[in-house]
Simulated assay, not measured.
Amino acid sequence: MGLTIGVIGLGRIGGFHADTLAALPTVEDLVVTDAHPAAIDATTARLSTARAVSDADTLLSAGVDAVVIASATPTHAALIDKAVAAGVPTLCEKPIALSVKDSAEVVHRVADSGVPVHIGYNRRFDPAMAAARASVAAGDLGFITTARSTTLDPAPPPRDYIAASGGIFRDCAVHDFDTLRWLLDDEVVEVYAAGGNQGDPHFAEVGDVDSASVLLTFASGTIGVVSVTRYNGRGYDCRLEVHGSTDSVVAGWDDGTPARNLQPGCGFPGGTPHAFFMDRFAAAYRAELTAFCDTVAGDGSPALCTARDALEVAVIAEAATRSATAHRPVRTDEVRAHHVTAQRQ
């Protein structure tokens, strides 16, 4: 018998996950729900294996083997708690919660539950990025001097999304923070961030920026460089560069890279630029959901992001937010001492 997987939240990414899960050979049935009935109807009309229920509580009591949470960010923490209380293995889209304090409280509550909880950081399953990590782990590059992660969105999300997102460091750059931490198997000790606004004034009105860069100092001495923007008109650009003392590697340079190469006589990249993250990372999402289903079936995947991993990413994002606001470096232990240690006492 195949798995029965629940999906809570059927918006852009939730609907995409439902389609991906329905196509996996290990998945037999889907149980789906959303706060908006139209999203439920669209999913069940599209997928013959999807059965609709009215709410998350009903879904978690419907005999599901696992659940994927893809609802709005403010609902994540409560839904993780409900899934764990029901004993249902969980994959939740990032982040755990909007604040470090709330994220730490969730991690503390689920730590001894025995229920697997993973957070959706799909770049761990991108083949080239995984190969870069393997090269670092094998020592093929010598000691790592610099690791660069880039996320350039082609256009901003809707204004309502921006206002509720928690800001570019918590919403967008967290993917880069997780990628670098996972790539290097190392912890960030200090963060320096700067951001700016040249586009829609709504970003500034809600205390956000539309473009930012972040310098991360890792415990080993490696420097991480993160660049993010909401305005990259040529397409969706996500790349990774790893520079070592003996070799360097890149991931994300393919014919769909949205860049015009001005080097005379060089035609690379020559393909249609990637338009959005779902076409750029379709294979990675499929691999991530496959790994999660394998974990539910008893074959664990070390690449899946744990809740505690995601908490460390939240600490980095909070440090970046503070740094950009105060125009100073911020050590991660400053954030951790204030938000993580205090909630355990």
Rank of each mutant, 00 (worst) to 15 (best):
G2I: 11
L21S: 03
T26A: 11
D29S: 13
L30R: 04
V31M: 06
A45F: 11
T49K: 14
T58Y: 14
I69R: 15
I69H: 04
A72D: 07
A78E: 11
A78M: 10
I80M: 04
K82T: 06
V84M: 15
A85I: 08
A86V: 04
V88I: 10
P95I: 08
S113Q: 05
G114Y: 11
G114P: 09
N122L: 14
A128C: 07
A132Q: 05
G139Q: 09
G142R: 06
T146C: 05
A147S: 02
A147Y: 00
T151D: 01
G167F: 08
D171S: 05
T179R: 15
D186P: 07
E187D: 13
A193S: 10
G195S: 00
G196V: 05
G199N: 09
V209G: 02
A212M: 05
T222R: 06
T222M: 07
I223W: 03
V225I: 07
S227C: 00
R230C: 04
G235P: 02
L240D: 00
E241P: 13
T246C: 15
T257S: 00
L262T: 04
L262F: 05
L262K: 14
G267V: 12
G270T: 01
P273A: 00
T290V: 13
T290W: 07
A291G: 03
F292S: 02
A307N: 15
E318N: 11
T321E: 09
T325E: 15
H338A: 07
